[in-house]
Amino acid sequence: MAQTHAVEPTRRDFLYVATGSFAAVGAAFAVWPLIDQMNPDASVLALASIEVDISSIPEGQESTFKWRGKPVFIRHRTDAEIAAAEADDAAALPDPESDSARLRPGPSGELEKKWLVVIGVCTHLGCVPLSYRGEYDGYFCPCHGSVYDTSGRIRKGPAPTNLEVPPYEFVSDSRILIG
């Protein structure tokens, strides 16, 4: 029963091609909602922010808070940690960034060197690094051995970039708003 429609590649073919293309374009548009529905929805995009009381974190210690489903490390750095971080500004860093560029000013307008705020997600493959571990006493990722310093900068291992600093600001001396 094979019917072959040879001959005249003219109006007839044009009509078929036009019809087929028109249908294909419609189908492509119809697929978009099915794809887009998997993107973050309006309730997710209504971005959450958290306000954190940092007065209870003693010097030399760190607390973890959950923000947008991820851990945020807030570290109250000691003078030694600050000094080590600043000294390493000059070191050969895989992802060069000065310590001061990773800090934010307090209510007075002065840089709050005591407070390091980073997202606690290894930039390699997303594990949560362990604090106060590794060669630089910063962070050590147990998954694949990435080592971060006391400024959260990558120093050794497979991670390509420094720990991310979330958007945050000091609301007062003792409270910061993340997000």
Partner: peptide, 16 residues
């Protein structure tokens, strides 16, 4: 609008 046009196209293609 799209479906009406598509129906038109299909109608003529089918007649052919």
């Amino acid at each position: 609008i799209y479906l009406v046009l598509l129906s038109g196209f299909l109608w003529f293609a089918m007649r052919k």
